[in-house]
Amino acid sequence: MTERIPVLKEPAPKPKRKAGKRLLGAIYLLFIVLLAVLFFRSELSKISDVTVSGGRFTDEGEILGAAGVGPGDPFFWPTAEAIAERVKRLDAVADAAVRKTFPGRVHIEVTEYPAVAYGLTEDGAITAILSNGAERPIGADSVVDRPVLRDWNGREADKLRLVDALSRLPDDLLSDFSEILPYPSEAWPDRIRIYTRTRFEVVTAVSLLAEKADTIRAVIETQEPGIITLLLADRYMPYAKDEGSGEAARDG
């Protein structure tokens, strides 16, 4: 008996999908690269405007110069953090924040060290003395709401210690101080004399100033104008009636 052998059909050829996918992927990639090249060559990828806020002792040009970016520069590089670090190198700047807003806008906001005193140059110009010891010129019409440091030429180390002590005083007390002069003695080489706007005269030492702040405030708030001595012992003496406002009434 003869057996029939079934005829085997050849399998239909599978479509070449892999090759097609690769070609399509290459086209997509080329398209994306082309778009990226066109974008980064366009004005959309560049800075169109840079603004600055927060600077009182540092002018806008100085901040922009430190930032190193301006209209026409790449928007995405350097990063906002890198620009902020550049600005923080300025001696008056305590902190800086940079915000980028697409398309093309960059805003730099600075926080400066506060002024704790003012100084006078040889030609009579006023400078702000900041809490980190930096000195910055200010306009002649600026409000002098901190003590003026007089006769500190040649005493730079003592002056820096005084600035540090002033930076730790409460704002209301600091704004009442009108002038501070060196008043050294053998026992107290860092002794100072302070004149207040409330017509008191305070004799103390730089090394004691922060510690004696509460005592100074208490006497000013409860006593008539007079001389406050705060060294080893604390002493208060009102002005004599015929003394008038005297030297202690200086208000800078």
Rank of each mutant, 00 (worst) to 15 (best):
E3K: 15
K9Q: 12
K9G: 03
P11R: 08
P13L: 13
P15G: 03
R17F: 14
K21G: 10
L29G: 15
L30P: 08
F39D: 04
R41G: 14
S45P: 00
K46D: 05
D49A: 11
T51S: 15
S53M: 07
G54K: 07
R56M: 08
T58L: 06
T58N: 09
E60P: 00
G72T: 11
P74S: 11
W77F: 15
A80P: 08
R89P: 06
A92G: 04
D95G: 07
R99L: 14
K100S: 10
K100N: 08
H107A: 15
T111R: 15
E122P: 06
P137A: 08
V144M: 06
R150N: 03
D151G: 01
W152L: 05
L160W: 06
L162A: 00
R168Y: 02
P170G: 00
P170H: 04
P170L: 00
D171T: 01
L174G: 03
S178Q: 02
I180V: 09
L181D: 01
P182V: 11
R191Y: 04
R197F: 04
F200H: 05
E201G: 14
V202M: 02
T204W: 00
L208R: 11
K212Y: 10
I216V: 15
T222M: 02
Q223M: 11
I228N: 04
T229L: 09
Y236H: 10
G244M: 11
G246I: 01
